[in-house]
Write a protein that binds this DNA or RNA. Sequence first.
DNA 1: AAGTGGTCTAGACCACCCG
DNA 2: GGGTGGTCTAGACCACTTT
Lengths: 242, 242
Amino acid sequence: MPDEPATLVAAKPLYAQVRDQLTRRLVSGEWTPGMLIPSEQELARQLNVSQGTVRKALDAMTMDNLLVRRQGRGTFVAQPEDPRQLFQFFRLSSEKQQEFPESQVLKMTRVSGTKDVVKPLGLSAGDPVIRIERVRSMGGAPIINEVLWLPADRFAGLVGMEHIPNNIYKLLSSKWGVTIARADEQLHATLASAQDALRLSCPQGHPLIAIQRVAYDLEGRPVELRQSRCLTDNVRYSVTLR
Amino acid sequence: MPDEPATLVAAKPLYAQVRDQLTRRLVSGEWTPGMLIPSEQELARQLNVSQGTVRKALDAMTMDNLLVRRQGRGTFVAQPEDPRQLFQFFRLSSEKQQEFPESQVLKMTRVSGTKDVVKPLGLSAGDPVIRIERVRSMGGAPIINEVLWLPADRFAGLVGMEHIPNNIYKLLSSKWGVTIARADEQLHATLASAQDALRLSCPQGHPLIAIQRVAYDLEGRPVELRQSRCLTDNVRYSVTLR
DNA sequence: AAGTGGTCTAGACCACCCG
DNA sequence: GGGTGGTCTAGACCACTTT
């Protein structure tokens, strides 16, 4: 790896090049969730850099929740179903416990993307998108009424799947090798519509939190647009600011 | 610094000891916001460790937003009024711009802490707390109706101050040397009460986001309990999940 | 015992900022 | 030119896990 800087200008630091190189192994599917990756020494040999440089790259990827390091065992690719990962993007929890919700898909269609949808996904007007409507429940009670959009071209075969699991991101990872690395959320308060009331078993006009999310993959490309409407009577949206 | 492990057991890594040592300089007020701190070499000499170990400690503190490093210049203590810091704990923004709100204090009293208040603050029932009610505005329009509690013993002289600035955390830093390092927030949807309606110039029953925050200092001790009720008609609560 | 990541050190060179 | 942080290397030892 240590040859001349690729462009003469820009020239990222070596450890950043190593990080990007290794991230590419994740994107390409060469490294899959749960897998033990080569040791620092081995990677240093492969890439012809020092162990310290590999370490710095691996540490950065560990901080991004892409890898998990275990002293004495080795470095592993993070798994979406790992409890540490599971609630990275699901922020609703009750006082007592952290529980991942069950989902019931109501509709799944392939549609032509409208401007509202296409823009945050970085697509062009009219590009095909997959639209999914679902209700999510915790402890048997419905709490989220949501619709989400995915670029259809990236997820061939999704429309028409008989069973959509509760954790969509795990599905995207296992079936298309797409890892969600980051999500931007914007919240505001709103009132339950007639549809909300029906699906969430609450009165029309009941206060809800509306969440708009855009989720990004490892390369920073938008992967999903999601609009959720959440009953927060028995549950809180929790975040830690640092 | 590198003598025997302090307790024979536990024995934190050296860089963590250095980090804690340097953090103590912040807590004690030896280092104040904006100040240039000694160079890595100098700190390494002072603490009798290698420069690499100091660097690791400084990097960790930089990641925690306690320090700011500038190549060629040196390492500085972070300032609460720095734009990078300002919006760390203020998550409401409009589409166009990030703007820090103006505040108008309505009431400030010293009271005996009730159980609800005392528990999150780690105090005992009846301990004295400072209770502040205020309304915060963006672009001239009121958007937040909030009440906050601080342990009275830590902030002697606060009650009775004629002017409370918009940024309370900056005040805590400059006057009492207390740095807010982390805040946990829990959100839910609610409806505007008669008081909310009055203070926020909105109809009673209007949807609001209610936020409960507990803020912690550098040593992880709770410093503030805050309950905000926010009009989100023209503004969004924004977070990035990683 | 062997292999892994975690810590610590020492030294080199680079990029940046300032007087 | 001298000082600072940023990068990169090489080697040592420790702590942990598995064989």
